[in-house]
Structures are given as C-alpha cells and as structure tokens.
Amino acid sequence: MKQLLSFILSLGMVCLVASAALSWVNQTTLEPIEKAQQAALEASLKLVLPETMTRTEEVPAEKLGEPAKDKQGAVHLYQAFDEKGTLVGYAASAISPVGGFKGPIKVVAGINLDGKIRGVMITEHSETPGIGTKVTDRKSVKSLWDVLAGKAHEEKFPPNEFLDGQFNGTDTAKGYAVGGANGANAVVAVSGATYSSRSVISAVDAIGRAFRNFQSAK
C-alpha cells in the first residue's frame, strides 16, 4: 500500500510539473503561432494577387452560399484593395473536398475582377514526392554554383505546368471538372498523378462555386 502511494505520488508529481511547463509554453507561443499562420496566409495571398494590392479583407462566410458542413471544402474568400482603396482582385483559399492521394490539399487561388483565375498555388499537401508533387509544387531550381558565385536570384512564383496551363485565365463561373462535364471548364489530369490532380481540381471548383455565389448575392 505504502509502495503504491509512492508510485502515485512520484508519477503524479512528474505529470503535474510537465503540465505546468506545457501550459506556460502554450500560453507564450499562442500569439506567435497565430501571427506565423497569419503571415504564411498573407504571403500566399500576395503571390496570387496583383502587385498593387496592399491589404486584404475577408468576405463573411454567409455570403458564399451554403456553408460547408465540415472543414474540408470550406472556402475563405478575400477582397484585395490597393493603396487608394479600390478593388483590384479576389483571392480564395480552400481545403480540397476530394482528398488527394494521401489526404486533403490546401489551395489558394487569385481571381481577377472579371472572374477569371489569375494564379493557383498549393499551400499544404502530403502527396508523394516526385509523383503527386508534379501537380502541387512550384519549385524554382537554383544552381549551387550560381548561389556560390552570388548570381542566384529568388524566383517568387515559379511556374508549374499543370497549375498554370489548366487554370490560368479560365472562367471560375463555369466550374471545373475532369473532362469538362455539364459545360464546366475541362481540366486534364496529369497522368500518374490522377488523384492529386482531381483533388486540386475539386478545391478550385469549390472556390469557383463560392465566388459565383458571392457575385450573385451582391
């Protein structure tokens, strides 16, 4: 009995100290984590919006039509303004309703004032490197020798054949589907990366639908 008590006491003490330390760390990092996430989102929005953009404003979710029941497929739409406060474009982020090969994909898209896609980028995914990443990654290739010689320059928005070729300039109002059923924009999936392509397409389609609802509600 006495032994049991010492077990409980020592393990309890360790747990108590550990949880005290954790709650302190949680408290102190709460704000920096939020800031880091906000900064990451803003950085990605900046990449798909016109350079004149100086601030963004989120559109309330109820203006985007029926709210998504779960987290997947939820769309956030942002209006972008320039210095003088004139609207220069829209940007939206969405988690793909249809999962990729290894889980949902997070997509950010810039939309021009006329409703055409300006650029699409993937902010989060867990696709297979070298296969699924063909449709998700925008990676600039910098040469080690250039960096050593000081000749390298940072490419902020490197091209991706699938994302640029399939979406840029397409009309969001029509929606997106592989093969283009029901008059939707026809998107060609990358062979070998069908699941990843479908997932990206579903996310852009969700963004298109939300944007359409927002436009018609205005």
Partner: peptide, 20 residues
Amino acid sequence: VVIAAFVTIIEKLMKAYAPP
C-alpha cells in the same frame, strides 16, 4: 511524460518561430 512534454514544447516553438 518528460519526453512527451519536451516534444510538445519543441512542436509549439517550431510552429511559432521556424520557417513555414
């Protein structure tokens, strides 16, 4: 418990300060 506490601490710190 000790190890898990340290792991959670580093996870929080990385989320807050490491490059995204």
